[in-house]
Design a protein around this nucleic acid. Structure first.
Length: 621
RNA sequence: GGCUCCGUAGUUCAAUGGAUAGAAUAUCAGAUUUCGGCUCUGAGGGUUGCAGGUUCGAGUCCUGCCGGGGUCACCA
């Protein structure tokens, strides 16, 4: 039963196993250890862990209190770590020997890699960020990136081999619109010549195209052709404005001069026209340079990049395989899958001209990834508006019998709203990622200067600390929310330093480090003799004890918010501990040594858990 | 309309089917302070959208409503 990642130390599994044995021995009934309901004892009762015994009333045919007594006696007799128990209703509260906690702290929690799960011999690819090359990153991407990054860190810590990847949407009509606008209106300007960040520079031409075509469209509406179209196709009683609003796409395809040029560019690109491809490469590289700056600011990186320009034609052989296996149906050149029975509708995978779709691309890309890495799990970090797409994709890959099909997961997250409502590009309420990062850092700078407590450091150190604080505020604010929930991002609250925030946790870390710095390292031999563990100290130990299990939970559920709450709880407890107990002038040398060990471990675990969220700890604040 | 996710203090968020639903923030009251701003202590604040059901036990599971989001493309 001894899992290498959780040696003797994981007392909860010992208790669960003990309960299984007790139930077998007392009532001759088999239960699974995982089914044993165990939790930490609530503060108002005596004990460390509690077992809920209600589930055994049926097999024992006794009152819950009697069962709890039976099992309690059995456990105390069989588990040396247990000293006593008490029973309240159906709850069996178990009291552990103080030496258990002492040993746990000194022998287990203090280990450098505490929390690290046993190697799982399983490779998981996490796909996140996955931007378009015609738009700079915004607040929505920030949530995606932070969630994705945190997942990679958590999975790695849990014992998986992790590949960080993104697929760049670098082709298509939108990209051609941007290129066209640059050709027509830039006069050869570059990011360097205009001193503009590359992605912003390119993005501005995408916006420029939208403006130009809107003007073109408006002018066309007054022409004889435009009026004729309205007269012929406009519905009874429909205003010209309403009609032309709904006619926009049709106009782009059938009448627009700019639209025609953009489409011609796309055809040239697909035909590998050297001049077009060269321009495309040049502009995309500007974008990548810009993205790199933002990724660096957020502290994320990737192992493998996929480009849609390389993958958009993939998947045809998979489609053929699916046709051979009768997974897909065909109608002329069009290939589709009928998933009505799964309530997922009918999805086209190849269009009637035989060209690819989003679905076929993703089928091909999944296969390519498997050939590249042989992973058995893939996590797609993508917004919840694509739930249907991924359900269909996963179902198809399953029916095709892909070996990794059982390990596919869509980490679907909700949109980020502003207090004023949804972000809308048309109304200019989109929060730019770079602006946001700059803003939180600026706010951190103001806060730090007001308190004036980094004055002793060099300019360089101050800047580093301020950046760490600002980024922590932003990252923690976003990642503490359960991913699947739509969240409200209040810029004001995001830079708060008080309460349930990143800087608050950083503060606990800095405080514990300062204690160690001032008072010295823990004397382990001396600390081992301290058994009069105080309630707050005990709470810290119980919290630390839960860390490895929570990492596994967070990895299984792909939910970084679990780690965020853990870090906050630990920070809060440490602040309280610091407030309640003397360290330097502790009542005994043993107590002092023990409290230093608590401080040291808390510092290390705070750092470790925040690192899982992509948050750095400053040296001082 | 079909499918799906969400609905918890004023607000933003917690709560492996377990004990009296918790934090933060805002508010109020004290304390402290050169400050209406920083810090500390405390208080109030809830029929967990509604109605049923399952269970020893439901915020959590099931059914039906109500409200909100998303999605129902030969776009990506």
């Amino acid at each position: 039963m001894n899992n290498p990642s959780t040696p003797v130390t994981d007392i909860t599994t010992s208790i669960q196993d003990g309960v299984v044995a007790a139930v077998k021995s007392l009532y001759d009934h088999d239960t699974a250890a995982a089914q044993v309901n165990i939790s930490t004892t609530r503060k108002e009762y005596e004990g460390d862990f509690s077992v809920v015994v209600f589930p055994y009333t049926r097999v024992a045919k006794k009152k819950p209190e009697a069962i709890a007594n039976d099992i309690g006696n059995y456990l105390v007799a069989h588990l040396p770590e247990l000293t006593s128990f008490n029973v309240i209703k159906g709850f069996l509260n178990l009291v552990l020997d103080k030496s258990f906690w002492n040993k746990f702290l000194l022998n287990v929690a203090m280990q450098e890699d505490f929390g690290k799960g046993a190697a799982k011999n399983s490779t998981v690819m996490v796909e996140f960020s996955s931007p378009n090359t015609n738009k700079p990153l915004h607040l929505g991407h920030v949530r995606n990136i932070l969630l994705g990054w945190a997942c990679t860190q958590i999975l790695e810590k849990a014992g998986y081999k992790v590949i960080k990847s993104q697929i760049v949407n670098d082709r298509g009509i939108a990209v051609c619109k941007t290129m066209l606008a640059w050709q027509k209106f830039a006069n050869g300007a570059t990011p360097a010549s205009t001193n503009t960040k590359g992605d912003k520079f390119v993005g501005s031409y995408y916006v420029r195209f939208a403006k130009e075509i809107a003007a073109e469209y408006a002018a066309w509406q007054d022409t004889a052709v435009g009026q004729k179209v309205f007269a012929e196709l406009g519905k009874e009683g429909q205003s010209a404005a309403d009609f032309f609003k709904s006619y926009k796409d049709k106009y782009f395809n059938d009448y627009s001069v700019l639209g025609k040029e953009a489409k011609a560019l796309l055809l040239q690109w697909e035909a590998n026209d050297p001049a077009v491809v060269a321009l495309w490469k040049k502009m995309n590289n500007w974008v990548y340079e810009g993205f790199e700056v933002t990724y660096n600011a957020l502290g994320v990186s990737f192992d493998k990049l996929y480009y849609e320009s390389n993958t958009y034609l993939l998947g045809k052989d998979m489609i053929q395989k699916g046709l051979d296996q009768d997974v897909f149906q065909q109608e002329g050149k069009r290939v589709f899958i009928d998933l009505e029975d799964k309530k997922l509708g009918v999805k086209t995978v190849l269009k009637s001209d035989g060209t690819s779709t989003y679905t076929s691309q993703d089928i091909g890309t999944a296969r390519l990834r498997y050939e590249d890495f042989g992973m058995d799990k893939v996590v797609y970090v993508v917004g919840d508006e694509q739930n249907n797409h991924f359900q269909v994709l996963f179902e198809i890959l399953k029916q095709l019998g892909e070996p990794y099909a059982a390990g596919l997961h869509h980490l679907s997250y909700g949109m980020v709203d502003l207090p004023t409502g949804r972000m809308k590009s048309r109304e200019g309420t989109v929060v730019d990622a770079d602006d946001l990062i700059a803003e939180v850092i600026e706010e951190a700078r103001k806060g730090t200067e007001e308190r004036g407590d980094v004055g002793a450091f060099s300019e360089e150190e101050q800047t580093a600390i301020i950046q760490q604080i600002g980024k922590a505020a932003l990252k923690y604010f976003i990642v503490k929310v359960n991913p699947k929930k739509r969240m409200v991002f209040d810029p004001k609250e995001s830079v708060d330093m008080q309460g349930n925030t990143g800087p608050y946790i950083q503060n606990a870390y800095v405080r514990s480090k300062a204690v160690l710095h001032k008072v010295g390292q823990a004397d382990i031999a001396l600390a081992a003799q301290y058994l009069d563990i105080k309630p707050v100290e005990q709470e810290i130990l119980i919290t630390l004890h839960s860390y490895p299990g929570l990492i596994q939970n967070a990895a299984e559920q792909y939910d970084p918010s679990i780690i965020a709450s853990f870090a906050y709880d630990l920070a809060k407890l440490y602040h309280k501990f610091y407030h309640d107990h003397q360290i330097m002038r502790a009542e005994s040398p043993e107590a002092k040594a023990f409290r230093l060990a608590v401080s040291q471990t808390t510092a290390q675990v705070l750092k470790s858990s925040m690192q899982l969220l992509g948050i750095e700890m400053p040296k001082r604040m």
